[in-house]
Structures are given as C-alpha cells and as structure tokens.
Design a protein around this nucleic acid. Structure first.
Length: 569
DNA sequence: GCCGTTTTCGGCCCGACTGTTTTCAGTCG
C-alpha cells in the first residue's frame, strides 16, 4: 500500500463522517492526517512503528493506530463500523459540483437517494426543487454536474492510465516485449481502457501473469491471443499477443485513432492493397510490411506519424508532403515556470524545489507562490513576497548549477484587477496571472478580466486559462480566440498547465495558440518536488497540439528566456 | 482528533460566492 492509498482511505473516512454529521473539527483532523501521510518523507508499511507514524504533523495516538492498521490490513475497524448502514454510493455524490456533505445527507434522508443514478432520476423528476435550500437553479446545476461525471464515467486521467500501464508491463515476464497502444499511446487527456500489445516467447505465461495480477478484480475473458480484465480501479485492460511479423501493424492498428486508420486503409486501397492488424498486403496478398510500424507508413508514401498526431486532423496530408512538425520532446525542456513552495500552499522549501529542479537537469526554475487573496493557500502579501525575493537571492548564492527565478501566481480578481500592485510585480522575474474565483462569470466578463491581465505590462504568463478540472469542473466560458489574439500582440505567454487533471490549455488550443503566434509556457503547478515530473504530461499535450520546441518558452536557454521576460512593453 | 510555556480544556482558517433566504446555509477553494 502506498502512502497515497492510505491517505485516500483516511479521506474516505472523513467523507463518511461528514455526511453522517460528525463533529467538523474531528473531520478536519482526519483530513490533516491524510495530508501528512501523503507528504510523509518515508513510505508507511506494516512494519513502520506506530511511534514513527505519530511523529507526522497532525497525527496523534488515535490516528497513528488507524494508519498502522490500514497499512497492515488495507482498512480499519473504525471505517468498517462507519460503513455499516452507510450507502457507499453517497460518496460519489460528493463529486457532483454544488453537493457537499450536508446536501448529500439531506437528499438521502428526504428522498432516499443512495447513488448517482438515483440523484439523476430525482433531479429529472423535479423532486429536488422545494427541499430546504434547494430551488430550480440548484436542481439544474446538479443535473449538469451529474452529466459531467457520467461523461467521464469509466474514463481515467492520462496520468493514472500511464501508471496502470507501467504496473502491467512490470507484471509481465521478461521474455515478452510489450507496449501500450490505443488512446494511451496517443496521449489523450482521458483514457477509456488500456490496451497492451506483446510479442515474444511464452505468451501463455504472459496471459497467465496478466490475469493473476493482484489488481485484477475480474477476468472478463482469457484466450491464447487476447485477455481482458477488469481492474479494481474499475478500468478495463486488454492484453493482446501478436506474432512478431505483425507487431508493427498491430501497434498501428490498435493505436488508432479510428478516423486516422480509416484514412490509412483508404490510402492502401487506392493502391490496390489492404492494411489490417496483421500487416500491409498487396493485391496478391504478399506481405509488404508488418513487423515495423514505420515501414507501413513508409510503404504508403508517408512519413512516420507520431502517435500523438493520429487524429485525422491534417497529419496525413502533412506526412505526405514531408512537413510534419518536429515535435517537442521532454529533453527540450530547460526549466519549470510554475511551482509552489511552503511559503504558500506547497510542501517544500525554495531550496528543496531548486535542488530537485537541478536534479532533473534544468537550467532554471520559477517560484510562483500564490498571492494574498487566495487565503486558503496562505497567499503572500507584498511584504512576505519581498521577503521571499530576498530568500531566493540567498538560495541563488548558495546553490550552483540552477537559477531560481522569483515570481508569483497573482490572482486575477473578480473585478479584473490583480491581487498585487504593479510596483510589486515589477520587482519579480516572472509573473503568472491566474483566475481562481468567480469562474462561472458570463463569457464577456470573464474574458475581459483575463484580457486586462494580458495587457498588464508586468504579466508574463496567463495561468490555467479555462480553470477546468477534468471530470470535476467544466472550463470557464473564456473567449479563447480573443485572449490569444491579445496575447499574440503583447507576446504574453499562455500556460499549458501540466497537472494531469488540468492540462489547461487543452491540445486543440495549443494548436490554435501556435497558429496565432502566441508563446506557450509549460508549467507543472508543482506543490512538491516530485510533481516536477508531471511536466511529461504537459509535453505530451503540447505534442498533441503540434508544438515544436521553438513554440515553448521554457525550452529556451536562460538568456533568451530572460530577454523575453525583460522586453519593453 | 490534535495540540499546548495560554497544558488536561478549549480552540482549531475563513472569505467569497451562490442561491436561497428576507438574514442565511452550504459549498468551494
């Protein structure tokens, strides 16, 4: 069990307690404990002494005992007691925007609702309207929230899918060669199911190993060449074993997308050939290609097309002309431009973040803590920000091999003004301006707010433009084109926030931004050192948006980046 | 449930927003 999983269980206990109406401060203690577990500097296992666990901040005797119990058994007595007579479906209701513990308890008590399906039916029937504190608008909002959750239902974030795929790959015997295909290989932001292709000796053992992984909840089917399992996380995973001479063709076929493959098949047909998951064949059914994916594209007169581009969005035409973009790679990234520290809501010090960035081989890292109006995040007022600038100077002197840029993620307030005055912003190396509140304003208002920030001569980057949280919050009604037009003029960068549930701006907007000449800054929004590696999801999304290194400001060497940051406006 | 030279009880982070209410409750970050 990972610390993260333990923390998730403690949080679930807190959720149940809240719905059951337990004392708020007790609930908060559980949440604090969960956070401590997640941030613990060591993995908690069945062997970790309780006294060690109790040293974590906010963890006392009682929580330490429960954490130890969870680490050893996967659950604890107290949780099991809470779950008696508690419909677990109520927990998923908490994910509906606008529903918190009080309303979930109310809906359960008054209408007997126990899960999402029941909630949707009740909302459609108009049964919510008239309950204390709920009217027509709430009912509509709840219904929309349920629909959003249903759209994501069964889909998981790219990051989760990659982790599961890695787990599967490591569970397979060393003798087989395996690779993910499908939308996972294309790097889509959410993934429906996980496809793994394999070749090699001992495919029977591979199937056996696959079906008997501890994470498997149910084996849906298991044959010689294909097995499907339902994982405990609710995700379906398929393993296909293909002959070596067909591996490239199978990889191509199962990577998709559907539309991309339709175009490829048509292209083969024009030549009197056929292409399928076994290979590319001529009119006499002679195999022209199959073992190697690139060869299939080549024989069809195309450059090899990177999986991220395979959406039938112009990539085939570009490949035909030999004009595919030279896509950005992870190695091109020279620094992270969006990070938080323990000065606001991050977990680690400036120095620790800087060292972690150096460890990654970065040239620079920008420290961009929140501004004061974001009270929950312990945002910095001008005075503390200036103290932080001093501390950054000190760290820059103390550490060699990395440059720490002083910055802020300043809030764009509801009225369009910024949360820090211009003379303070002028003191910083880099300024990200982001919307964190009033995201549901009408398009005109929200867009004007952001345009105001774009036009501010101190603002270098607009952070997570639409504010979406995949599966949890719809994007705000920003007029993206208008913002891009303005940003192109001022050469203000638009952020591609690499956090897996944001990936904001999305791939299609990356492409639009590039077309309009808007610089893009990829930042992780890291709140702890290990988050720095999330940059890979930003890179993948940028690749899906046809980005080359030149389009991304944090591929630039430090001198060029600084020149851009200091340009006259 | 945790914490503490305010130490065995009493406080714990709260401000903005929304929809509902005619003075506030619930949610969210």
């Amino acid at each position: 069990m990972t610390n993260q999983q333990i923390a998730a269980i403690i949080n679930e206990i807190a959720d149940i307690m809240e719905i059951r109406g337990e004392d708020y401060f007790r609930v908060r203690s559980y949440r604090r404990g969960a956070e401590s577990v997640q941030n613990a500097p060591f993995p908690i296992t069945a062997d970790t002494p309780q006294s060690e666990i109790q040293k974590l901040p906010g963890v006392g005797k009682s929580l330490a005992a429960k954490i130890a119990e969870i680490a050893a058994t996967g659950t604890c007595k107290y949780r099991e007691e809470l779950l008696v007579d508690f419909p677990v479906g109520l927990l998923e209701l908490l994910k509906v925007p606008g529903l918190g513990p009080k309303r979930v308890a109310l809906l359960n008590r008054e209408l007997g609702i126990v899960d999402l399906a029941g909630l949707e039916a009740a909302a459609r029937a108009g049964a919510l309207e008239g309950l204390p504190g709920l009217g027509k608008k709430s009912q509509q909002k709840i219904l929309e929230g349920v629909q959003m959750l249903k759209r994501l239902a069964g889909r998981i974030l790219l990051s989760e899918a990659r982790e599961i795929a890695d787990m599967i790959l490591s569970a397979l015997p060393d003798t087989v060669q395996a690779q993910p295909a499908g939308s996972l290989r294309r790097g889509k932001e959410t993934i429906g199911d996980i496809d793994i292709l394999a070749i090699g000796e001992g495919s029977a053992q591979a199937m056996e190993a696959f079906c008997s992984m501890p994470e498997v909840d149910e084996v849906l089917l298991s044959g010689e060449t294909k097995s499907s399992v339902l994982l405990k996380s609710g995700v379906q995973a398929d393993l296909r074993v293909v002959p070596e001479e067909s591996f490239g063709a199978a990889l191509q076929y199962f990577t998709g997308s559907k539309q991309h493959n339709v175009r490829l098949r048509a292209r083969a047909r024009e030549r009197g050939w056929t292409v399928n998951e076994y290979g590319l064949f001529d009119e006499k059914e002679k195999r022209l290609a199959g073992a190697d994916e690139a060869e299939i594209y080549e024989k069809l007169g195309l450059q090899w097309i990177p999986p991220e581009l395979r959406e039938d969005a112009g990539e085939i035409e570009a490949a035909e002309r030999g004009e595919l973009p030279d896509l950005l790679t992870l190695d091109d990234i020279r620094g992270d431009l969006h990070t938080h520290t323990d000065w606001s809501d991050g977990a680690q010090s400036i120095e620790e973040m800087a060292l972690a960035a150096r460890e990654r081989g970065y040239e620079y890292i920008a420290i961009t803590d929140h501004s004061r109006s974001l009270g929950v995040a312990r945002g910095l007022d001008p005075e503390r920000l200036m103290q932080q600038v001093e501390e950054i100077r000190r760290v820059n002197k103390a550490i060699r091999g990395i440059t720490v840029l002083s910055g802020t993620e300043v809030d764009i307030l509801a009225d369009g003004s910024l949360d820090l005055p211009d003379d303070v912003l002028a003191e910083l190396d880099i300024v990200i301006a982001s919307v964190h509140s009033s995201l549901s304003q009408p398009q005109e208002v929200l867009t004007e707010r952001i345009l105001n920030a774009v036009r501010n001569p101190h603002v270098d980057v607009i952070g997570h433009l639409t504010g979406r949280l995949i599966g949890r919050r719809e994007p705000g009604a920003v007029d993206v084109e208008r913002v891009f037009d303005a940003a192109a003029q001022t050469q203000t960068a638009i952020e591609l926030n690499a956090f897996p549930d944001r990936l904001d701006i999305a791939d299609v907007n990356v492409r639009l931004a590039i077309a309009k000449g808007v610089p893009i800054a990829i930042g992780t929004d890291a709140h702890r050192a290990e988050h720095l590696e999330l940059i890979k999801y930003g890179v993948t999304t940028a690749r899906r948006g046809w980005a080359e290194a030149q389009h991304i400001v944090n591929t630039w060497p430090k001198e060029r980046l600084l020149k851009w940051l200091r340009r006259e406006r």
